[in-house]
């Protein structure tokens, strides 16, 4: 009897030690090891729900008009449609296009230029940017502390109702980390559940030949900084990674974006200059080979025929994850 209790106790301890984080068990085995350290921000459903409430709440902005979702729309994989450059409080226009938000645990840095080094401090940037939410973190804390609903939500998530910067930011991360897209046709193909048609198959072959260096499978980005040959928009003068690293070699380099859900994340590129995937294909097919700043992988003529361009686009559409795009757990929280 005593032995049995001991055995039971030991197995409880053992289970507690091997139990992995909720987020970590929610992505497929062929994904690489995440960069985010889940043990520093242990998840539970209540923290994720709190983060979701914060994400959709304009309380984070100065005049209570703009929420994270104002620029990151759930039905567009959390990108900003309709606008090539993002819109903030008082209709102020930012200088970049809002990127998609999912599979963020694999990013080594955030923003088009990698200005943010950790997911947990990401939200500070839009909250305090004068053209975005124009607020200060200390004032956000004041507002949250005066709000009975938040008192309750923090209490449920953390065991006491203390509201501070660390908890607020980590809760937002919890919601962002729950956004995992891994249920596209491409994923089903990898798992052997379905087969690509000939067009998609050919597009996939061409993709591996020309695009996979940077838009690396299975996340469709290696999260490095590259120059993919876009010409400088002189009305924005955006030098990309250079403005952060101050290294001359980094000028005009931007973080390689994922291509999952790309069918829905238009407009494209850091400044939203292309509205369609056909325009993107035309860009890659007419790279200016005289420009030596372009990353070496693209220093060649792709010579794609119009059929081949269409095939690549057909393949890109297999990266659409409808289950993710219309997942009610990611959408505006019902009160």
């Amino acid at each position: 009897m005593k032995n049995k209790i001991l055995l039971l106790l030991l197995s409880v301890v053992f289970l507690a030690l091997i139990s992995i984080d909720k987020h970590e068990s929610s992505f497929p085995k062929y994904f690489p090891k995440p960069v985010y350290q889940f043990e520093q921000n242990q998840s539970n459903d209540l923290k994720i729900e709190l983060g979701r409430t914060l994400f959709y709440d304009p309380i984070l902005s100065l005049d209570n008009t703009i929420s994270c979702a104002s620029c990151h729309n759930p039905y567009n994989a959390f990108a900003h449609v309709d606008h090539n450059l993002s819109h903030g409080i008082n209709d102020k226009i930012g200088k970049r296009n809002a990127p998609v938000l999912f599979n963020l645990a694999w990013h080594k840095s955030f923003m088009w230029d990698g200005a943010i080094n950790h997911l947990d401090v990401q939200a500070l940037a839009p909250i305090s940017h004068p053209d975005e939410m124009g607020e200060t973190m200390s004032n956000v804390l004041l507002k949250l502390n005066r709000n009975q609903i938040y008192k309750q939500l923090f209490y449920q998530a953390y065991g006491d109702s203390q509201i501070n910067t660390e908890r607020t930011l980590k809760s937002i991360s919890q919601f962002l980390l729950s956004l995992i897209s891994s249920n596209s046709k491409y994923d089903s193909m990898l798992l052997g559940k379905i087969q690509f048609n000939t067009q998609e198959q050919n597009g996939y072959r061409l993709f591996k030949l020309h695009c996979n260096f940077c838009h690396k499978e299975p996340l469709f980005s290696d999260f490095s900084f590259k120059n993919n040959g876009l010409s400088l928009d002189t009305s924005l003068n955006d030098f990309g990674r250079y403005s952060i690293s101050l290294l001359p070699n980094d000028s005009f380099k931007f973080k390689v974006p994922t291509l999952r859900n790309v069918e829905f994340s238009y407009p494209y590129m850091h400044d939203g200059r292309f509205k369609t995937l056909a325009q993107v294909m035309n860009h890659y097919n007419s790279i200016d080979l005289k420009n030596k700043k372009i990353s070496t992988e693209l220093q060649r003529n792709l010579n794609l025929s119009s059929n081949e361009k269409v095939d690549i686009i057909a393949f890109l559409r297999t990266l659409t994850d409808k289950k993710f795009l219309f997942n009610p757990q990611h959408a505006y929280p019902k009160k």
Partner: peptide, 20 residues
């Protein structure tokens, strides 16, 4: 190390929010 508390709280005014 991401979001830290106490003396290292980013809301102490000693943190660059636009470039971590």
């Amino acid at each position: 190390s991401g979001a830290l508390g106490g003396q290292l709280d980013p809301s102490n005014g000693m943190y660059w929010t636009w470039q971590s």
